[in-house]
């Protein structure tokens, strides 16, 4: 059952048009760690709070945002790319969803995704920041020209990971070291342990010791709930039924927006994280 949403109007106004929108990126050092699930739910939760949100699917070859939302876009990032540079306008290539946020869809064909370059992506992100309070970017794994360009535009980087076996931990450590070498500010990074308490032989404390950073968020392992959400094409944060995973994602959004009351320093959100 989907919540009755106060965000059905796709032509909603930005909360603060004076400033450019924030860019939140979902990135990972290993695949299948829940980037798309988190991004979709994060977008739905922000929209539910009345913000104007666009989720751009930058997994250009095998993006799943539209699959997870059950939408069939008529316009995609490729159609945007296919315009002359000075005539590109993201507004013409957006797909509205019933969940209160918009989507800039990944190309429909693999070869279309292959040709899109970093400059075009930067151009699109800049335009989206003018039109939305929050621009959420769902990306592919790994460091490429495109992901480097995205990182430069990112205000907050969500880095979900799954502690399944040692090679994944090694990749996470290398990924964090690479971000450090790229001088990406750790204060803008949120390390998320997804599928917390899933079957694994590795202790979370050991992982934190190896990578040299604590996890900031813990998202429960709810395989059945996520599968049902994908089958029904409905973000879990919008379901009426009590759902721990939905609450955890919602808490994550609250904390980022500074809407959560309690932290050890008394400061919340992004500002609070500067002093943690």
């Amino acid at each position: 059952m989907v919540k009755c949403m106060n965000n059905q109007n796709p032509k909603r106004k930005r909360k603060n048009e004076a400033v450019k929108g924030s860019v939140f990126t979902f990135f990972s050092t290993a695949s299948a760690v829940g980037k798309t699930v988190l991004a979709v739910n994060y977008a739905a939760d922000l929209a539910e709070r009345g913000y104007k949100v666009c989720l751009a699917d930058l997994d250009l070859q095998f993006g799943d945002v539209c699959n997870y939302l059950g939408i069939t876009p008529t316009q995609t990032f490729f159609n945007y790319y296919d315009q002359e540079e000075d005539r590109r306008d993201t507004a013409a290539f957006i797909t509205e969803t019933q969940f209160g946020f918009d989507v800039l869809a990944a190309p429909l064909e693999v070869d279309e995704g292959f040709v899109i370059d970093a400059e075009t992506i930067l151009q699109a992100i800049n335009q989206l920041r003018d039109d939305y309070d929050y621009v959420l970017l769902d990306t592919t794994t790994g460091f490429t020209n495109i992901s480097m360009a995205i990182l430069e535009q990112t205000d907050v980087l969500y880095l979900p990971c799954v502690v399944d076996f040692i090679p994944s931990i090694k990749d996470l450590k290398i990924g964090l070291e690479t971000l450090h070498k790229l001088q990406f500010d750790y204060q803008r990074m949120r390390l998320i342990l997804n599928r917390n308490k899933a079957e694994t032989q590795i202790s979370i404390k050991d992982v934190e010791a190896i990578v040299g950073r604590p996890f900031q968020y813990f998202i429960s392992n709810d395989y059945q709930g996520i599968m049902q959400s994908i089958r029904e094409a409905k973000p879990v944060v919008l379901t009426e039924a009590k759902n721990k995973l939905a609450d955890e994602i919602s808490d994550m959004v609250s904390e980022e927006l500074g809407e959560k009351e309690e932290t050890s320093s008394g400061l919340t959100g992004w500002l609070g994280s500067l002093f943690r």
């Binding site: 699959n67 064909e109 070869d111 599968m227």
Partner: peptide
């Protein structure tokens, strides 16, 4: 590909086309 009950077969088909 891993059978995960989502869209892996769709992705596989698209890769096959290439």
């Amino acid at each position: 590909t891993m059978a995960d009950g989502t869209f892996e077969m769709k992705h596989l088909q698209r890769a096959m086309e290439i």
